[in-house]
Computed example of a mutant assay.
Amino acid sequence: MPIEVPDCHCVLCQELTELDWRTRTTADTVIEHGWQVLMVPADDAGPGWAYTIGLWHKHGLPELAMFGLDARVMHQLLNDLAKAAVNGEPAAADQERHGIVKGYPVVLKSVDYRWYEAFFGTAIGFYRRPPFDFLQVVWPSRDGAFPWQPGGDDLLNRQPRLWLHPDEHPVGVWTQDL
């Protein structure tokens, strides 16, 4: 049963029926499973990413996003994190989580809302407008360095730094269309 999310304007709370196929599919999946993981595959422009839709509406939890790994792997990892959050291990900003990526911790970082339009269009279509929160699931290099640590710079082309204001983000594949 959904919890009461203040100021929720999503397609379910507004009982909208005239929806495009993508939003209808998302709404049906959220109703049935509690959230959906949407995958954006890698292409010639850059790495892929995946993110949840429905955690905020159905459970009052932040949505989750992950970048730069195989889409199927990110799908599974986000489902695992979402299940854990729904089952009492809530995700929070600047939290380090273990047991998600084999042998490595991940860190959850708050996404600056100015990135939403660039990466989370289907979530915007579902929620219709903020507020809804996103956390980026950030993974380390093979040496265990995160993007903000020495040795983590090589991760820039695999995962953006969405916790930064877009004007502060290093120029690269993630900023070329901004």
Rank of each mutant, 00 (worst) to 15 (best):
V11Y: 05
A45M: 12
P6R: 11
C10T: 00
L77R: 09
A84P: 03
N79A: 08
L19T: 05
L69M: 07
L78N: 03
M74E: 03
D70H: 04
L81Q: 05
M66D: 00
V5I: 11
G88S: 08
N87V: 06
E63P: 01
V86F: 06
N79G: 06
L12G: 03
D7C: 12
D20Y: 10
E18G: 05
H59V: 03
W35D: 04
K58G: 08
L16F: 05
Q76L: 14
D43L: 06
V37I: 01
T17E: 15
L77P: 01
T25P: 09
L19H: 08
H9A: 15
D7R: 15
L81F: 04
E4P: 02
H33N: 13
W49E: 01
P47V: 05
N87A: 10
C10H: 07
R24A: 15
E4Y: 13
D28Y: 04
E15S: 13
E4A: 12
D20A: 05
M74Q: 01
Q36V: 02
C10I: 05
R72T: 01
K83D: 12
D44R: 14
P2H: 11
G88T: 08
A27S: 07
A50F: 02
P47Y: 15
L81Y: 05
M66S: 01
L81E: 04
N87D: 15
D7M: 14
I3L: 11
N79H: 12
L81H: 05
H57T: 00
T25Q: 14
A85N: 06
E63M: 03
Q36A: 12
V5A: 10
D44C: 11
Q76G: 04
P62N: 08
D44H: 14
C8Y: 07
D20Q: 07
V37Q: 04
V11M: 07
T26G: 12
G34E: 10
G46M: 14
G46L: 13
H75T: 03
V73R: 06
L77V: 01
W21K: 15
H33V: 03
T26P: 09
P41T: 00
D20E: 09
G68W: 15
A71R: 11
A27G: 04
V86Y: 09
E63H: 04
I31L: 15
L19Q: 09
F67P: 02
G46V: 08
L16M: 14
L38D: 15
M74L: 04
W56V: 00
P41Y: 11
I31Q: 13
W56E: 01
E89F: 13
G88L: 08
A45S: 14
L16K: 15
V40C: 09
L16S: 07
H75L: 06
L38F: 09
E89C: 13
K58S: 14
L55S: 02
H33M: 11
L38N: 13
P6N: 07
I3S: 08
C10N: 06
